[in-house]
Amino acid sequence: MKKVLSLLSLLLLTPSASLLLAEPTAAPAVSSPLIDQAEAARKEADALGYEWRDTGALIQSAKDALQKGQQAESDKLASQALFQARAATAQGQYMAKNWKMMIPKN
Protein backbone atom coordinates (compact mmCIF):
# COMPACT_ATOMS: atom_id res chain seq x y z
CA MET A 1 0.00 0.00 0.00
CA LYS A 2 2.83 2.34 0.94
CA LYS A 3 4.60 1.60 -2.33
CA VAL A 4 1.44 2.27 -4.30
CA LEU A 5 0.94 5.62 -2.57
CA SER A 6 4.48 6.77 -3.17
CA LEU A 7 4.24 5.67 -6.82
CA LEU A 8 0.99 7.60 -7.17
CA SER A 9 2.41 10.73 -5.60
CA LEU A 10 5.45 10.48 -7.88
CA LEU A 11 3.19 10.23 -10.90
CA LEU A 12 1.18 13.24 -9.73
CA LEU A 13 4.22 15.34 -9.00
CA THR A 14 6.24 14.54 -12.10
CA PRO A 15 4.48 16.84 -14.58
CA SER A 16 4.39 19.78 -12.18
CA ALA A 17 7.99 19.15 -11.15
CA SER A 18 9.10 19.07 -14.75
CA LEU A 19 7.23 22.31 -15.30
CA LEU A 20 8.97 23.92 -12.35
CA LEU A 21 12.38 22.68 -13.35
CA ALA A 22 12.02 23.48 -17.03
CA GLU A 23 14.20 26.21 -18.50
CA PRO A 24 12.22 29.45 -18.76
CA THR A 25 11.27 29.83 -22.37
CA ALA A 26 11.68 33.24 -24.06
CA ALA A 27 8.50 35.27 -24.27
CA PRO A 28 6.92 34.87 -27.67
CA ALA A 29 7.71 37.75 -30.02
CA VAL A 30 4.89 40.25 -29.86
CA SER A 31 4.24 42.14 -33.00
CA SER A 32 1.68 43.51 -35.38
CA PRO A 33 2.03 45.07 -38.82
CA LEU A 34 1.72 48.54 -37.26
CA ILE A 35 4.37 47.82 -34.63
CA ASP A 36 6.70 46.47 -37.33
CA GLN A 37 6.13 49.60 -39.42
CA ALA A 38 6.79 51.85 -36.43
CA GLU A 39 9.96 49.95 -35.53
CA ALA A 40 11.30 50.19 -39.09
CA ALA A 41 10.56 53.92 -39.16
CA ARG A 42 12.20 54.39 -35.75
CA LYS A 43 15.36 52.71 -37.01
CA GLU A 44 15.39 55.03 -40.02
CA ALA A 45 15.20 58.11 -37.75
CA ASP A 46 17.87 56.65 -35.46
CA ALA A 47 20.21 56.07 -38.40
CA LEU A 48 19.96 59.79 -39.17
CA GLY A 49 20.66 60.63 -35.51
CA TYR A 50 17.27 62.24 -35.14
CA GLU A 51 15.19 59.71 -33.20
CA TRP A 52 12.82 61.32 -30.76
CA ARG A 53 12.91 60.60 -27.05
CA ASP A 54 9.65 58.69 -26.60
CA THR A 55 9.33 56.68 -29.80
CA GLY A 56 11.02 53.56 -28.48
CA ALA A 57 8.95 53.64 -25.29
CA LEU A 58 5.73 54.00 -27.32
CA ILE A 59 6.63 50.93 -29.37
CA GLN A 60 7.33 48.98 -26.19
CA SER A 61 3.97 50.09 -24.74
CA ALA A 62 2.26 48.99 -27.96
CA LYS A 63 3.87 45.55 -27.57
CA ASP A 64 2.81 45.35 -23.93
CA ALA A 65 -0.78 46.22 -24.82
CA LEU A 66 -0.82 43.60 -27.56
CA GLN A 67 0.45 40.99 -25.15
CA LYS A 68 -2.46 41.81 -22.84
CA GLY A 69 -4.84 41.35 -25.76
CA GLN A 70 -5.58 45.06 -26.07
CA GLN A 71 -5.40 45.27 -29.86
CA ALA A 72 -7.03 48.69 -30.21
CA GLU A 73 -4.77 50.29 -27.58
CA SER A 74 -1.74 48.67 -29.16
CA ASP A 75 -2.64 50.04 -32.60
CA LYS A 76 -3.17 53.50 -31.14
CA LEU A 77 0.27 53.51 -29.49
CA ALA A 78 2.00 52.06 -32.54
CA SER A 79 0.38 54.71 -34.73
CA GLN A 80 1.71 57.43 -32.44
CA ALA A 81 5.18 55.90 -32.61
CA LEU A 82 4.94 55.65 -36.40
CA PHE A 83 3.95 59.30 -36.65
CA GLN A 84 6.82 60.34 -34.38
CA ALA A 85 9.37 58.27 -36.28
CA ARG A 86 8.26 59.63 -39.66
CA ALA A 87 8.31 63.21 -38.35
CA ALA A 88 11.79 62.66 -36.88
CA THR A 89 13.06 61.31 -40.20
CA ALA A 90 11.60 64.26 -42.08
CA GLN A 91 13.21 66.58 -39.53
CA GLY A 92 16.58 64.87 -39.93
CA GLN A 93 16.44 64.95 -43.73
CA TYR A 94 15.49 68.63 -43.71
CA MET A 95 18.18 69.58 -41.21
CA ALA A 96 20.89 67.68 -43.08
CA LYS A 97 20.29 70.01 -46.04
CA ASN A 98 19.35 73.22 -44.29
CA TRP A 99 21.08 73.42 -40.90
CA LYS A 100 23.26 76.31 -42.01
CA MET A 101 20.12 78.39 -42.43
CA MET A 102 19.60 78.07 -38.67
CA ILE A 103 22.76 80.04 -37.83
CA PRO A 104 21.54 83.30 -36.32
CA LYS A 105 22.79 86.55 -37.76
CA ASN A 106 23.14 89.81 -35.93
Binding site: Y50, W52, R53, D54, Q84, Q91, G92, M95, A96, W99, K100, M102, I103, P104
Partner: peptide, 19 residues
Amino acid sequence: EMFYAKRGQLNMSCSGCHM
Protein backbone atom coordinates in the same frame (compact mmCIF):
# COMPACT_ATOMS: atom_id res chain seq x y z
CA GLU B 1 25.76 70.94 -37.35
CA MET B 2 24.81 69.32 -34.05
CA PHE B 3 24.82 72.75 -32.42
CA TYR B 4 22.66 74.54 -34.98
CA ALA B 5 20.30 71.81 -36.25
CA LYS B 6 16.87 71.60 -34.65
CA ARG B 7 15.83 68.23 -33.29
CA GLY B 8 13.39 66.44 -31.03
CA GLN B 9 9.66 66.81 -30.52
CA LEU B 10 10.08 70.49 -29.70
CA ASN B 11 12.11 71.11 -32.86
CA MET B 12 14.77 73.02 -30.95
CA SER B 13 18.53 73.40 -31.28
CA CYS B 14 21.39 74.21 -28.89
CA SER B 15 21.72 77.58 -30.62
CA GLY B 16 17.99 78.31 -30.42
CA CYS B 17 18.15 78.45 -26.62
CA HIS B 18 21.76 79.36 -25.97
CA MET B 19 22.25 81.97 -28.70
